[in-house]
Amino acid sequence: MKEMSKKQMADAASRHRNGDGNPLGANSEIARKLKQYYDELVSDHVPDRFAQLLSQLEQTEPAQKKD
């Protein structure tokens, strides 16, 4: 197995310290923003009217299954 030169090792360490060694590369920023957006979306409050409609739907589903 080929050994890394001192310069190659220093370059790799520098990339790692700077965050450039991330396996996703430029996609890591996209992944971070998507996760942030998803977390915000999941934590949003469900409007009362929407919750009422979901409740009504859940109540009518069992009645429809009996038919």
Rank of each mutant, 00 (worst) to 15 (best):
R17P: 02
R15Q: 13
L54Y: 05
K66D: 00
I30N: 06
A26N: 13
Q36S: 05
D44R: 07
P47C: 01
Q36M: 07
S43G: 12
D44C: 12
S14V: 10
D67A: 01
L54G: 03
D67K: 00
A13I: 11
Q56E: 13
G19F: 03
M1Y: 11
R17F: 15
Y37A: 15
M4W: 03
P47V: 01
K7C: 07
Q36Y: 04
Q52V: 06
G21I: 08
A63E: 01
M9S: 09
P47G: 00
A63K: 03
M1I: 11
A10W: 05
R15F: 02
N27P: 06
E29I: 09
S28Y: 08
E61I: 09
M4L: 15
N22C: 14
T60H: 00
G21C: 13
S14L: 13
S55N: 12
L54A: 13
R49Q: 12
L41S: 11
M4F: 00
I30A: 12
G21T: 09
M4S: 12
K33T: 06
D11I: 04
N18C: 08
E29C: 09
S5P: 07
L57W: 02
D44L: 13
A13Y: 03
Q64C: 09
K2H: 10
Q52G: 10
A13Q: 14
D67V: 03
S43F: 00
S28V: 06
L54D: 11
Q8V: 00
E61W: 01
G25L: 10
P47N: 00
Q64N: 08
D11C: 06
R49H: 12
K6W: 02
A31D: 13
G21E: 14
L54Q: 07
L41E: 14
L41G: 11
D67M: 04
K65G: 02
K7E: 08
D20C: 08
R17M: 14
A51P: 07
L41N: 09
Y38N: 07
N18T: 07
Q8T: 03
Q64L: 06
E58I: 02
G25F: 04
L41W: 04
G25R: 09
A51T: 11
R49M: 09
V46C: 11
L54S: 06
Q52K: 14
P23A: 08
K65I: 01
Y38V: 11
Q64F: 01
A12H: 00
K35E: 13
R15H: 11
R15C: 11
S28K: 08
E58G: 05
H45S: 15
K7T: 14
D39V: 04
L34H: 11
S55C: 05
D11R: 10
K65L: 04
R17V: 15
E29P: 06
K2P: 12
I30K: 03
A51W: 00
D67L: 01
R17C: 09
E29W: 00
Q36D: 00
E61F: 02
K7F: 09
M4R: 03
Q52R: 10
K65R: 04
A10P: 01
V46E: 08
S5K: 01
A31S: 14
G25N: 10
K66M: 02
L57C: 12
L53D: 04
E40L: 05
A12G: 05
G21A: 15
H45P: 13
E58W: 01
G21V: 08
K6P: 12
R49V: 12
K66E: 02
L41V: 10
S28Q: 12
D44N: 13
